[in-house]
Structure formats: structure tokens, C-alpha cells
Amino acid sequence: MSLSQDDVRRIARLARIAVSDDEVAASQAQLNQLFTLIEEMRAIDTTGIEPMAHAQDVMLRLRDDEARAANRREAFQAVAPSVENGLYLVPKVIE
């Protein structure tokens, strides 16, 4: 298994990270090195083993349906890059 430069560009695009051609080449080499490391895991027979998604075998705790969060817009938007009339501003969203 080896990643092409197109693979790197595709996942960089998925992850919304701009990459230069140099970065693509460097990432390709490093990721392929990493995947060589990861490769040895793939040969292990794990038939019948249940995947472990959580460190503890617990069940979801549920909270009561109560709307009790205070309005903290001012504090939250104090750290926002761009707001107007209480809205977060972003470059035009085109559907």
C-alpha cells in the first residue's frame, strides 16, 4: 500500500488544509513511511475480535431534558474573528 501524490492532495482537500507541491512531496514520503509501520498490523488475524472503540466498557449516561444553559453570546463572541449583529461572519456560503 503506497500513497500517491494525488492521494495526499485528496486527503488534504478532505481535511481542508492547503498544501504546496513541496509539502505534498514531503507528506507523501512521511505518510508512506508511517503506513509501512502500520502495515505490520494488517497481517494480524483478528477474526472474531470485537473492535474496541472506548477505553472503558460503559454505557451512555443520559441527562434530563432541561433547558438551563445561560445566554453567553457576548463572552463567546469576544474571541470570534468576525461577528456582526450576533452572527458569525464567513465568506459567502454558496449552496
Partner: peptide, 22 residues
């Protein structure tokens, strides 16, 4: 969008995401 670094470069929404994160 809501906090942290945002690129100074102007562009489309996706440009903003990609540059900000890069």
C-alpha cells in the same frame, strides 16, 4: 469561524478554511 486564527487572505469559504488551517 468562531474563535482562533483566521487567515488574512481573502477568498472563497473553502479558501478561508484551507488557508486558515494551513
Amino acid at each position: 469561524v468562531r474563535y482562533g486564527h483566521r487567515t488574512a487572505k481573502t477568498g472563497s469559504l473553502d479558501d478561508m478554511y484551507e488557508q486558515t488551517r494551513a
